[in-house]
Every structure is written in structure tokens, then in C-alpha cells.
Amino acid sequence: MNIFRLAGDMTHLASVLVLLLKIHTIKSCAGVSLKTQELYALVFATRYLDIVTDFISVYNTVMKLIFLGSSFSIVWYIRHHRVVRRSYDKDQDTFRHYLLMIPCMLLALFVHEKFTFKEVMWTFSLYLEAVAILPQLVLLQRTRNIDNLTGQYVFLLGAYRGLYIFNWIYRYFTEPHFVHWITWIAGVVQTLLYADFFYYYFESWKNNVRLQLPA
């Protein structure tokens, strides 16, 4: 494992912790897209089917359990928690999941490395993860006054994706035959989706003003 991969995983972990902190401590999910969280839960559920069939390392298994557990508990909190669910911006969070899920499933059925159930589901999870942030970005754009924790959550997620690209570049040069076009293209597309957000995030940070995305 290289430093970029580790830093990427830690940023990913930090993003989830920031979100759980917001929801659990402040008892608010204002500005958080349930649609995006449901898509992430589906991403992890379809990607980590190998958790029961292949053992890679203790680190790998523990992280998979954390991402599965945290994504499903975040969804549970927003949908069912007595206090948290009241802060959910239902009327603003209107992105339709299936517009992302169906094209990703069709693409995975046609473009994959191997045509097996596990492999197609794994490929579907890569495509879906690439676009799963879209409902959250749309919601941010509609929300005036994005709070700090929500802004940091999206920033950390974007940083995680960026670090994975450096990880692939590193692995490409250090590991023979490390070529995974599908993973790389989906990963680059995903990272590009954050470009606009990053621009405004750094602008607000530089000027020391509250983060706001233009409508």
C-alpha cells in the first residue's frame, strides 16, 4: 500500500466521520442529500460482495465493514431518527436516483472486464460511485448558507477521489500489469465532478467567507 492510497482511504474515512458527527452530535442532516447517501449504500453493498468470498487483508475487511455500516446507518438516521429526519430538506433533495442507477446498470452489463455476477456488480458500483455525488452537489447549489460540516464532508470526499488518482499513477509505475481502464476512467470522471465545488470551496476559504455555490 502506498502513501496516496492510505491518505485517500483516511480522507474517505474522515468524510464519513464528519458526516456522522454532524448527524449524531448536532442531530441535524440539513444540507445532506439522502439520495446521495442511498446511492453510496448501494455502491458499497454491490462492490463489497467479495467480503464473504475473498480475504485480502484485515485492513481491507475492516474498512469495508466501516463503509457498509456507516453508509447504511446514515441512511437510517435520515429516514427514521425521530429528531434527525425533521431536518431533512426533502423538498430540495429531488434528484431521481433511477436516472443514475439504470444507465450505470446498463453500462455495467455491456462494459466490464468479466461477465460474472460479482464482476458486473462490482463494475456497476464503480460507475454508480462516479455519479453518486450529483444529488448532493445539486442540493448544495440550492442551499443558501452551506454549513461548515457539510462543506468539509464534500471537500473530504473530493480529496479522497483525487488521492486515488495519484495512487493509480504510483501503482502503474511500480506494479507490473497494473492496468484497470474502467476503474481509472470512472475515477477520473468522479473527481472532475468535484472541480467546480473545489473552486468555490477554496475561494470561500481564501476570502474567509461562507461557502455558497452560484445557482
Binding site: 500500500m1 492510497r5 482511504d9 474517505h12 467479495d50 475473498d54 485480502i56 487483508s57 485492513y59 481491507n60 474498512m63 469495508k64 463503509f67 472486464e113 462490482w122 486515488y164 495512487n167 506494479e175 507490473p176 500489469h177 497494473f178 484497470h180 476503474t183
Partner: peptide
């Protein structure tokens, strides 16, 4: 660990 397996990433 440093496996060349395609699925060792999260």
C-alpha cells in the same frame, strides 16, 4: 500488503 489483485482497493 501489496497485492496486484484488481479488487484490493476500496
Amino acid at each position: 500488503f501489496s497485492s496486484a489483485s484488481s479488487h484490493d482497493e476500496l
